[in-house]
Nucleic acid binder design. Structure first.
Length: 310
DNA sequence: TTAAGAATAT
DNA sequence: CATATTCTTA
């Protein structure tokens, strides 16, 4: 159906998020880095109520294997090479959080995924490799690994899509449910229309795709508490956009007590925003807004500046 | 429990 | 880099 093409294109174009829509309201609180830097022990979520059973069966005398501190990063020593660590930062006794620390896990919002798809479509399947995609997306804080992981899953999704579209009907999200695939699965991928040539390996694709709009992604790190309403509404419908303002700041703690901004990692939803101050490289569009979060320590929360390129 | 994202391995 | 598998966490 030719009309569908223009149709989904229009919708797709229409759904392009504005920077404002993506602009998170929340400020960043503590990061794992800071927690580590401040020697803050895991304020692991305390059992609010009596749990059904006490989960911790401490191994009698077995050597502690890989214990899993809730959010604390285990100090892994990747530099196990024989080379002496001469160039390690500056202080030898202190930790070196600059690397080896875990950053908050990326949440692929529909918008972010949209940009991802956009980038892949623009690049073409051939050039759509993680690094290139990452660069084109120009999202600050986005790592190649993030993209690679997402790309991996997305390819699987496309594969499933191909099988379905060849067998049944269109590639609409709605078709998924009719094709026996759970619409409930692949929420995210279904949120953004899949360019036709993604499913047609033979088709030569042209770069008839638009210039992306600047984007800001939100990297969020929330606890299992039903805190902020950050997560995107799983409508696989053509919902316009969920402009949820994450205002978890207005609510005071349960006990009305003040919480130290630093030592309150638990229970506080943190929305880490990875905006896109990217350098104006040769093809990438420089985002208008470029505010970087920088804690009082002078240490970047999320250091990752593609200035050096690869 | 499930699922998303990350880590790790091939 | 791609893919498979496993792990952690929301």
């Amino acid at each position: 159906m030719r009309e569908d093409d223009s149709n989904w294109f229009s919708k797709w174009e229409d759904e392009l998020p504005s920077p404002e829509e993506l602009m998170p309201l929340s400020q960043t609180l503590i990061t794992p880095d800071l927690a580590l830097a401040f020697n803050i022990p895991n304020p692991h979520q305390q059992p609010l109520h009596n749990h059904h059973h006490t989960p911790p069966p401490p191994p009698p005398q077995s050597a502690a294997l890989s214990s899993q501190p809730n959010s604390s990063a285990e100090f892994d020593s990747p530099e196990l090479s024989g080379a002496a660590g001469g160039g390690s930062g500056g202080a030898g006794g202190s930790d070196e959080p600059a690397r080896t620390i875990k950053r908050p896990r990326l949440v692929w919002t529909p918008q972010l995924h949209k940009r991802f798809v956009d980038a892949v479509a623009h690049l073409g399947i051939k050039n759509a490799v993680p690094k290139t995609i990452m660069q084109l997306m120009s999202v600050d804080g986005l790592t190649r690994e993030n993209v690679a992981s997402h790309l991996q899953k997305y390819r699987l999704y496309l594969k499933r899509m191909q099988g379905i579209s060849s067998n049944g009907g269109g590639n609409s999200p709605a078709a998924l449910s009719g094709s026996g695939m759970d619409a409930a699965t692949d929420h995210l991928f279904a949120s953004s229309p899949v360019p036709p040539h993604f499913l047609h390996p033979g088709r030569s694709n042209s770069e008839h795709f638009l210039p992306f709009v600047p984007v800001a992604a939100t990297m969020q790190q929330h606890h299992h508490h039903q805190m902020a309403v950050v997560p995107p509404p799983p409508h696989h419908h053509h919902h316009q956009q969920m402009q949820q303002q994450f205002r978890h700041f207005g609510s005071s703690p349960p006990n009305g007590q003040f919480e130290h901004p630093f030592i309150r990692q638990s229970q506080q939803a943190q929305v880490q925003r990875i905006g896109a101050p990217v350098r104006g490289s040769n093809g990438v569009v420089p985002p208008p807004y470029a505010d970087d979060l920088e804690p009082a320590n002078g240490r970047k929360v999320l250091t990752l500046f593609p200035t050096g390129d690869d």
